[in-house]
């Protein structure tokens, strides 16, 4: 974007709705990124392998962290209307290389595809793990630094969600990570990104800081 705002960007494509792909076409499209724009709960329950989750309303704030200029993107959505909104959001931040889109995650399971799942865990389980002090497990807080200044969970590690675009390389794919934020939304983006990079033992703290605070006292 910085480059485009000096040199001048071109007009976005007039057709905002992406080309629909069959499951086979999606699997063969070779996109650099497979982004699932459904809600966090939907992605955690079942997702196409290799996909990561950026819910449609979070695209303007987060897609730019993970998708580089010119890189190709395939989208997965619950319905075609969400795809139009997703593509509009992507165009406004200069990401135009959308090779196509797919709807129908559950039907993919019915066609025999192996779908990924990521657990959402609750406060009791997070507390249990903190108390167990398991060396192989880390609670990663992906909120912004100013939010963390207000309140944080002792023992959590801070990596801002967007910074995982590079910092995932410093983590151990064989270790176990729980991702948290203020609610579980950004934590799902972060967990899904790690999952797409081959991290098998990630989960999401459902409710995150809000649930933690509600469970105190």
């Amino acid at each position: 974007m910085e480059r485009l705002n000096v040199e001048g960007g071109n007009a976005p494509p007039r057709v905002m709705r992406p080309r629909m792909l069959s499951l086979k076409q999606l699997e063969d499209c070779g996109a650099d990124h497979l982004i699932d724009v459904r809600e966090p709960g939907a992605w955690c329950a079942a997702h196409l392998l290799g996909s990561y989750c950026i819910p449609v309303s979070m695209i303007p704030a987060f897609a730019g962290w993970f998708v580089g200029e010119g890189e190709s993107v395939a989208l997965v959505a619950a319905d075609e209307d969400a795809l139009e909104t997703a593509k509009t959001h992507l165009a406004r931040i200069g990401l135009d290389n959308i090779v196509g889109a797919y709807t129908g995650v559950i039907p993919a399971a019915a066609q025999g595809r192996d779908l990924g799942q990521v657990p959402m865990i609750k406060t009791q389980e997070v507390k249990r793990r903190i108390e167990a002090a398991d060396n192989g497990w880390t609670l990663i807080d992906v909120r912004a630094a100013d939010e963390r200044e207000q309140a944080k969970i002792d023992g959590s590690t801070h990596i801002y969600a967007g910074h995982l675009n590079e910092k995932w390389q410093d983590l151990d794919p064989l270790a176990s990570y729980t991702l948290m934020c203020a609610s579980g939304m950004r934590a799902t983006v972060a967990a899904s990104w790690l999952s797409s990079k081959g991290f098998a033992n990630v989960d999401v703290y459902l409710g995150s800081m809000g649930a933690w605070n509600a469970n105190q006292g």
């Binding site: 974007m1 705002n5 007009a11 730019g64 931040i93």
Partner: peptide, 16 residues
């Protein structure tokens, strides 16, 4: 100013 969180429409609108 030059934004870093969105792509400016100025060159497009100027051309139109």
């Amino acid at each position: 100013h030059r934004n870093e969180d969105l792509v400016s429409g100025s060159p497009v609108l100027a051309e139109w």
